[in-house]
Simulated scan of single mutants.
Amino acid sequence: MSYQIPCSPVVTETEEKKSRFICWLGPVTDKAAFLHELELIRSRYPDASHHCTALVIGNPSNPQTMQSDDDGEPGGSAGRPMLELLLKQGVGNVGAIVTRYFGGTKLGVGGLMRAYRGAVGAALQSAELTTFIPLLAVRIVCDFAEESRVRFLVAQCRGVCEDAVYTHQVSVPVQLPQDQWPTLRAQLQAEGIRFEELEAT
């Protein structure tokens, strides 16, 4: 349900056998925005050897988007260990870009995996993370006499009532934290108030 997300971008630098690894790690909810950030970093470090990436959009236990790229490093030696670390740490809506300046000594596949994973690990340690709780959209249908009670119950569960539609009954769109929904649902069921679960965001 809930997962960790970075609050703002960080940049850290690590070194392995004279190769420099500069890691940008930051919040990402859109693949196009991440690719734009990658282009900015490519232009900032035009003489770098590689720009390897990992991206997780959505909940890391079941991501909407998940991808990695080795950018010319041996297959599976850079992007994949970066991605695996983000997933293992339970961080979502996050992108990592590791820029490598080759230091003259080949690291081998195992060394590269450790170095790229370590670069992302250092950035995660520097980053401020916060808990993200997905929101759930619900529509509650009630009689006019029940509307104030519905609004009270929603507020108790840290939810927000949006603009209601009034016909022969009241239809109230609601957004609330997903972890609060079982409590509200039980209260609505106990009072015989109808509802429709829409979607999580």
Rank of each mutant, 00 (worst) to 15 (best):
R44N: 08
Y45G: 01
D30C: 12
K31R: 14
T53H: 01
K17N: 13
W24I: 10
I22K: 03
E39V: 08
L35T: 06
Y45Q: 02
A48W: 08
L40Q: 14
D47W: 03
S49D: 05
T12K: 11
K17I: 06
S43C: 09
L38E: 03
K18I: 03
C23Q: 12
E15L: 10
C52W: 01
E16N: 12
R42K: 15
R20E: 08
D30Q: 11
T12S: 15
E39Y: 09
R44S: 09
E39M: 09
E37L: 03
F34S: 05
L40I: 06
V28F: 04
A33F: 05
S49F: 04
A33S: 08
H50I: 02
A48V: 03
E37A: 09
D30E: 15
S49A: 15
E16G: 06
I41K: 04
R44L: 10
L25P: 00
E37S: 09
H51R: 04
T12C: 12
S49M: 05
Y45F: 15
A48M: 05
V28L: 06
Y45W: 13
C23S: 12
L35H: 10
C52R: 03
F34A: 04
R42C: 12
R44F: 08
K18S: 13
E39S: 09
E15V: 15
H51P: 01
E16Y: 12
I41P: 00
H50K: 01
F21K: 10
P46A: 07
R20F: 11
T12W: 13
K18N: 14
L35I: 05
D47F: 04
H36E: 13
R42E: 12
S19A: 09
A54V: 00
P46Q: 07
L38C: 06
P46S: 06
H50M: 01
L40H: 11
S49N: 11
D30F: 08
S19C: 05
S43E: 14
A33I: 04
V28I: 15
I41L: 13
E37P: 02
L35K: 04
D30L: 06
T12P: 11
R44I: 06
A54P: 00
C23T: 15
A33H: 09
P27A: 13
D47V: 04
E37Q: 14
G26N: 00
S19R: 07
R42P: 14
T53L: 02
T12F: 07
S49W: 06
P27S: 14
A33V: 08
K31P: 02
L38A: 06
T12E: 11
I41H: 03
R42A: 08
K17A: 12
F21H: 11
T53S: 10
C23Y: 13
P46T: 05
C52P: 02
A32C: 03
D47G: 00
K17F: 05
H50T: 04
D47M: 02
